[in-house]
C-alpha cells in the first residue's frame, strides 16, 4: 500500500484514496482511537493510518496540488457486513463486538458470504456483480444513514474522513 500511495502522488492526478479493510478477527476500531494520541497498535485501521501518515510525510510536494486526501474504513469482520444493511440480517458493529466479548461471534465470515452472495465461494465475477447490487440497493433505498449508524466506528470514520475533504 505505501507504493500505491506514492504512485498516486507522483504519477497520477488522483485527488483521493479510499480504502476499506476487513478486520477478520482483529480488534474493532473504537471512537477513542480517533482522540489525539488514541491510536491503538492492535487496530488495523489505526495501523493503516499510521502508515499513511509516514508515507505522506516522506513525499515531496506535488506541483500545484496538495497531498492526496485519504479515507479509511474498517469493516467488522468483512465488507459483506456493510452490504447486508438493507437485508433482514442483524449485522452491526454492536452485534459483532458483543458477540466477541461473549466469546462467540454472532456470525462468521463464511455466513456473511452466504447471506451476501448466496454461496460461500463465489467467483470473482459473481462477487463483484452481487456487491455492486447491494451497494446500489443501499443508495436507492437511502440506507446510508443506517449504514453509518450500524457501523459507527468502521464505516462512520470513513464517512467523516470523506466529509472532511
Amino acid at each position: 500500500m505505501p507504493a500505491v500511495l506514492r504512485h498516486l502522488h507522483y504519477r497520477t492526478d488522483a485527488d483521493a484514496l479510499v480504502v476499506s479493510l476487513d478486520s477478520d478477527g482483529s480488534l474493532s476500531h473504537q471512537p477513542a482511537h480517533d482522540e489525539p494520541d488514541g491510536r491503538a497498535p492492535k487496530c488495523r485501521l489505526c495501523r493503516f493510518r499510521e502508515m499513511i501518515d509516514e508515507v505522506q510525510e516522506s513525499l515531496r510536494p506535488r506541483a500545484g496540488r496538495g497531498p492526496i486526501e485519504t479515507a479509511i474504513g474498517l469493516a467488522v469482520p468483512a465488507i459483506e457486513a456493510w452490504c447486508l444493511v438493507p437485508s433482514e440480517h442483524r449485522v452491526s458493529e454492536n452485534e459483532w463486538n458483543l458477540g466477541l466479548q461473549g466469546g462467540k461471534p454472532p456470525y462468521t465470515k463464511e455466513q456473511l458470504k452466504i447471506w451476501t452472495y448466496g454461496m460461500s465461494r463465489p467467483s470473482l465475477e459473481e462477487e463483484t456483480r452481487r456487491i455492486v447490487e447491494w451497494v446500489r440497493r443501499i443508495v436507492d433505498e437511502g440506507k446510508q444513514p443506517q449504514l453509518e449508524k450500524l457501523f459507527p466506528s468502521g464505516f462512520g470514520t470513513l464517512a467523516r474522513d470523506v466529509r472532511a475533504w
Binding site: 454461496m119 460461500s120 465461494r121 463465489p122 467467483s123 470473482l124
Partner: peptide, 17 residues
Amino acid sequence: LRCVQDAIYRLCYPKEC
C-alpha cells in the same frame, strides 16, 4: 490466479455454480 481458484471451486462445489 483467482481465475484458477474459481475454476477449481466450480469443479468442487458445482451446486454453488
